[in-house]
Design a protein around this nucleic acid. Structure first.
Lengths: 221, 221
DNA sequence: GGGGAATTGAACCATTTTTTTAATTTGTTA
DNA sequence: TAACAAATTAAAAAAATGGTTCAATTCCCC
């Protein structure tokens, strides 16, 4: 049955279910993102995804065609959710350096709180962006992220606190690299250097300061 | 046949081959690394690996037990090769800041020239380091990398050019993050921001300078 | 009350890993 | 040099696994 949130599922097969296409789609996508991010594209099992949804395996195919289509839609949904989160951030009242500080902190925390998303992006890179290439939706979303940074840089440049030769895209790259790697490689880094404490709460706060500082040292005049 | 480097393979099956376990093992590992890095652990096909070797599928099992064992050995071999490359670097004659500059440049170039290795590490992270955890060999290799950096930092600190509060492990983390991300995420970054030129030769040199500069600004007093 | 959309459970079939058999060649050493 | 162990080939097929589809049922709305 589609959406029996709490009550015990009726025993007799196929009794009293409600049609709810939207909820079913979302439920599938949420679970798909979970499972793909846990096991990679090929490692993820359609059966496993189906089992964790509240609907049947057949519905995955009904709505998304095949495994690859399901993965692509999960990726899209993930990007969308992440971008929506970023819109909440309000930087207009702040001085350029405070705005930059806040942006970096936000990105750092945001990535840390969304490891599933990070893992999907890793998977996509391993598969050479095959699914991303097919999705027009995703590309359109991301370029606005640069615009915000450009604005901060311009203001800082005008008021003399920032260097004048810093490109927004390059700076975004640096911020992204540091915040992304912190999540993407924590397993191997932690194992290789016996540095588990770097990824516990205290170590994470320390490193967030490190990252903010590194970015600001790069742009300050 | 095992190792017929140049000559045309004799037609008649099973004629004039040499026993060469070492070479066969290495050949298998090289191909395995290739294929795993292309497709991920589950995406890689044992048949595909076998087909690309100069030996038969049976030998993969003969030497490495099963798919997971093969993957683990390929990962180990990769780490070993990379570490050996790093030993060639000679920093003793240089001033602390020049040594650091050279180390960062080396790491940047090194990662860039070994995308297969980077991809294996990505895959390992997606699989939560399951294979790395089982390999005692790998862990022992990596801690020496920190020692070299510690030495540079100490010298710089003593001569007053470096800050005194920089931890080697944290700095290594930053260097690693920037150099790793440059390779690991080039596909998605390039696609998302239509920034293919950042990953062509010229753009790469530019960004190497950026990375070196970012690291030095972080440590200089 | 009829038709299309949503949904289900099970069956199907292709792919892939793994094991096995069986024969052959090579290297080593008693 | 005979004999035995290790390396190698080739092929097949057992065993598992996993993606996809079929056929029937229930719901919803006009």
């Amino acid at each position: 049955m589609a959406r029996e949130t709490q009550e015990a599922a009726p025993k007799g097969r196929r009794s009293g279910w409600k049609q709810n296409p939207e909820a079913v789609r979302e439920n599938i996508l949420r679970v798909a993102r979970e499972v793909f991010s846990e096991a990679g594209f090929s490692g993820a099992r359609v059966d496993e995804i189906a089992a964790r949804t509240e609907t049947s395996k057949r519905m995955l195919y009904y709505y998304f065609g095949d495994k690859e289509g399901l993965y692509r839609h999960a990726l899209e949904a993930s990007y969308r959710e992440v971008r929506e989160g970023e819109h909440e951030l309000d930087l207009v009242g702040l001085s350029p350096d405070d705005a930059l500080r806040k942006l970096v902190e936000f990105t750092y925390d945001h990535h840390r709180r969304n490891p599933e998303f990070i893992r999907l992006v890793m998977i996509e890179n391993i598969h050479n962006g095959a699914s991303l290439a097919q999705s027009k939706v995703i590309k359109d979303m991301n370029k606005t992220a640069i615009a915000g940074l450009e604005d901060i840089l311009a203001r800082g440049r005008d008021s003399g606190v920032f260097r004048s030769d810093i490109k927004a895209l390059a700076l975004h790259w640096q911020i992204s690299a540091l915040c992304f790697y912190n999540v993407s490689n924590r397993i191997t880094f932690s194992a290789l250097f016996s540095a588990a404490e770097m990824f516990e709460e205290e170590g994470q706060i320390e490193r967030r300061d490190w990252v903010v500082d590194a970015v600001l040292r790069k742009v300050l005049a």
